[in-house]
Amino acid sequence: MSSAPDLSPEFLAADVHGKLQDAGIAFIVITTVIYFLFNVSRISCAERNGWEFWVLYPISYFLQLVLGIICILFVQYGGAGRHAQYWLIHDPVVLENFAKIQTADEFIYVAGVTVPKVCILIMYLNIFVERKVRIATWIVIAVVIANWFIIGIIVTFTICQPFAYKWDKSIPGGHCADLLASYRWISIPNILTDLAIIFLPFSTLYRLHTTRVRKIGILLTFLTGGLGIITAILRLVGFFTLDLFSDPTFFGVETQILTLVEPNAYFICSCLPGMRPLVRTVFEKSGLTTAVSRYYHSMRTGSRTTRHDQSGISLEVPRGYYKASVSAPKETRPGSANDDDATLIRMDKSYQVAYSPV
């Protein structure tokens, strides 16, 4: 707590609750819009949806929604934004409400980080066919779930004895472990699993036989799953630079915003790849796909070579090795125009093309 000389009228009048309340409302709106577009994309444009679409994604969205509501509750009932000394003077019960809301927030935060990560990893399983990569993905899923069970349930329930001592310091014989350390180091497992999410697709992508442009596009799609690492690092730094328990209701505004942003970032990242069918459909209907294709084709005409056979058929081939075949229309034997059995498919020519830079 701050010393007595700091309790000036200006100090007690300080109030930054607007930042936390605005952040809560903003992410409720942003997450809802993203989730709505994700559902539109998957239901109307995608060929099929797995069980995770019907189970994990709704749970994940609900958790993000609760985190946004908790930010508002922090302001309305927990006194977030004002200095703790203000509430000690005017209404000490508010500090108890703050600790209760903070306890609920811890449970929701860990679950809110875990579920969207599992969604991203299940997306990997639906894409990867390489055995080693699939095994590694299952291992990461197990680590993510184990982290939630250990930190989100066991540690949260046992860090204070009895459990209610976390908000009621009047309980005789009650004690808590280092709460600030637990808030700080909880981000480390998140960062490590984020790194695994980022690097898992690399080996598969490296072996993928496609153009460099398409590889970059696929890589960017996968990297969206690891963008949560940025918010995890910011949250870790935030808890190291702020002494939360010296003034919980005031400093808690900054740390709670970071605690809100991190799981929401994971959720948004888990939804973005699933929105590709909707984006593709919008592009096709708007005619932008045709325009881009024509532009891309015109840019590449200089790197293609055209070969003509004696029938005047054009074969455009980029550098590399390709197999191509040229077929003629159906040919009917004379005198058997109405006999389907007499219809033949005549293969005029087949080509084995080995086109090199030379």
Rank of each mutant, 00 (worst) to 15 (best):
residue 160 C to M: 00
residue 234 L to A: 12
residue 220 L to F: 07
residue 290 T to C: 11
residue 128 F to M: 09
residue 318 P to Y: 03
residue 43 I to N: 01
residue 203 S to T: 10
residue 114 T to F: 07
residue 291 A to I: 08
residue 342 A to D: 08
residue 337 A to Q: 15
residue 308 H to P: 13
residue 62 F to K: 08
residue 13 A to G: 07
residue 281 T to W: 14
residue 144 V to A: 01
residue 67 L to W: 08
residue 334 P to Q: 05
residue 315 L to H: 14
residue 111 A to S: 08
residue 16 V to S: 06
residue 12 L to E: 01
residue 164 A to R: 00
residue 109 Y to F: 09
residue 320 G to F: 07
residue 280 R to A: 08
residue 289 T to P: 04
residue 253 V to I: 07
residue 176 C to K: 08
residue 149 F to M: 06
residue 147 N to W: 15
residue 268 I to D: 08
residue 144 V to K: 09
residue 81 G to T: 08
residue 135 I to M: 10
residue 235 R to F: 09
residue 210 T to A: 14
residue 244 L to V: 14
residue 288 L to P: 05
residue 201 P to H: 00
residue 310 Q to K: 12
residue 82 R to K: 04
residue 12 L to T: 07
residue 264 N to L: 09
residue 224 T to F: 11
residue 249 T to V: 02
residue 243 D to W: 04
residue 57 Y to R: 05
residue 161 Q to H: 12
residue 330 K to S: 10
residue 51 W to Q: 10
residue 109 Y to D: 02
residue 59 I to F: 11
residue 328 A to G: 06
residue 112 G to W: 02
residue 153 I to M: 06
residue 114 T to P: 04
residue 217 G to C: 11
residue 179 L to A: 02
residue 297 H to P: 05
residue 29 V to H: 06
residue 73 L to E: 05
residue 199 F to P: 10
residue 309 D to W: 12
residue 151 I to Y: 08
residue 283 F to M: 14
residue 89 I to N: 09
residue 46 A to P: 07
residue 45 C to Y: 04
residue 104 A to K: 04
residue 203 S to M: 09
residue 336 S to A: 14
residue 75 V to P: 03
residue 48 R to V: 15
residue 327 S to F: 12
residue 113 V to W: 07
residue 126 N to E: 00
residue 224 T to E: 04
residue 42 R to A: 11
residue 56 L to M: 05
residue 51 W to F: 10
residue 35 Y to I: 00
residue 322 Y to Q: 11
residue 54 W to I: 13
residue 239 F to N: 01
residue 176 C to G: 05
residue 306 T to I: 03
residue 123 M to P: 13
residue 312 G to Y: 04
residue 90 H to T: 12
residue 297 H to M: 00
residue 326 V to C: 05
residue 91 D to A: 06
residue 300 R to F: 11
residue 210 T to W: 04
residue 178 D to R: 07
residue 257 I to K: 04
residue 190 N to G: 10
residue 100 K to N: 13
residue 21 Q to W: 14
residue 241 T to K: 13
residue 168 D to A: 04
residue 179 L to I: 02
residue 318 P to L: 00
residue 335 G to E: 00
residue 5 P to C: 12
residue 111 A to M: 13
residue 83 H to E: 04
residue 209 H to M: 11
residue 106 E to G: 09
residue 235 R to P: 00
residue 89 I to A: 14
residue 9 P to Y: 02
residue 260 L to Y: 08
residue 117 K to H: 05
residue 52 E to Y: 01
residue 227 L to M: 06
residue 283 F to N: 10
residue 278 L to T: 01
residue 179 L to G: 08
residue 188 I to Q: 11
residue 137 T to M: 06
residue 334 P to I: 06
residue 340 D to M: 01
